[in-house]
């Protein structure tokens, strides 16, 4: 593994920058991705409109907060780069090997690409999402001063996403096809992550199950802090996110090591 030095940081951050640039090389791609995001956001706000009916709030979320909540969860969910297919292909075709020849660590190499690509979507999604939300319910219920803190939580949310995705994709060392795992994963995020519904409205037992798992720290928690900031909650969320990150990183590095050993022993 790399020693964390300025050179290593520069290396991976430039890699992220390059994948960002590569991702926005085709404007049509960017537009269609953003359009899809806008579409989903639109459908979900309409659904919430129907669910709320005449009520003005639910589980402590006002109508305005709900729309901005959706904007935040959808941004995180739909901006996250689809690296899984590529990692799986790399693992299957043995292209992992070509990355091994460079002074790079495969996992952090993918991580840098993931962040670069995700950022390229996130910027446009947040921009369009904010416009839509503002048109629907007015400016966000948040003071600008908290935004940097939100950004920290969001970054960790993306890191958690990355770790879970690369973990699933690395299973390609052992199984034929990891695609189905990702279908399920996206549904897990949908429900246990709180994509559409803040988990506060879940039945109590389900809410408890949800909080004990990492998924709500990817969507629900950052979005809740975004619409309803609270310093104590922020610190707590940050701590738990960090804990999950460490745990998952260890798991990913371990499974990667096992997988590479398999390539080394058995060939690509």
């Amino acid at each position: 593994m790399d020693i964390v030095s300025t050179k290593a940081v520069r290396k991976y951050s430039f890699l992220a920058k390059t994948s960002f640039a590569s991702k926005i090389a085709y404007p049509l791609d960017v537009i269609s991705r953003t359009f899809f995001f806008a579409l989903v956001l639109f459908i979900f706000t309409q659904l919430w409109g129907a669910l709320l009916g005449a009520d003005s709030s639910i589980a402590g979320f006002s109508r305005q907060q709900l729309v901005w909540y959706l904007m935040a969860t959808e941004s995180i969910m739909l901006s996250n780069a689809r690296i899984e297919r590529r990692i799986e292909d790399d693992v299957k075709s043995g292209a992992v090997a070509y990355i091994l020849i460079r002074p790079l660590h495969f996992v952090w190499y993918q991580c840098a690409i993931y962040f670069g690509e995700s950022a390229s979507s996130l910027i446009f999604n947040i921009l369009i999402g904010s416009i839509i939300a503002t048109l629907l319910v007015g400016v966000p219920p948040i003071s600008v001063g908290f935004l940097p803190l939100i950004l920290v939580v969001m970054t960790l949310a993306f890191l958690l996403q990355f770790l879970i995705k690369i973990f699933l994709a690395l299973l390609a060392f052992w199984v034929e096809d990891t695609g189905p795992f990702f279908w399920i994963y996206s549904k897990v995020l949908f429900t246990l992550g709180g994509l559409f519904v803040p988990i506060d409205i879940y039945p109590e037992w389900l809410r408890r199950v949800t909080v004990a798992m990492p998924f709500n720290y990817i969507l629900y928690q950052p979005a809740r802090l975004f619409v309803n900031f609270n310093l104590a909650a922020f610190v707590q969320v940050l701590g738990i996110q960090a804990m999950w990150s460490v745990l998952l990183t260890a798991l990913v590095l371990y499974i990667y090591k096992q997988g590479v050993k398999k390539v080394s022993v058995n060939g690509g």
């Binding site: 669910l51 189905p180 279908w183 399920i184 949908f190 559409f196």
Partner: peptide
């Protein structure tokens, strides 16, 4: 099997709603 599971999870979501 996973596709069926995938669909069932969406039902679960609606059940929660």
């Amino acid at each position: 099997v996973f596709m069926v599971l995938n669909d069932v999870m969406l039902l679960f979501f609606w059940w929660v709603i």
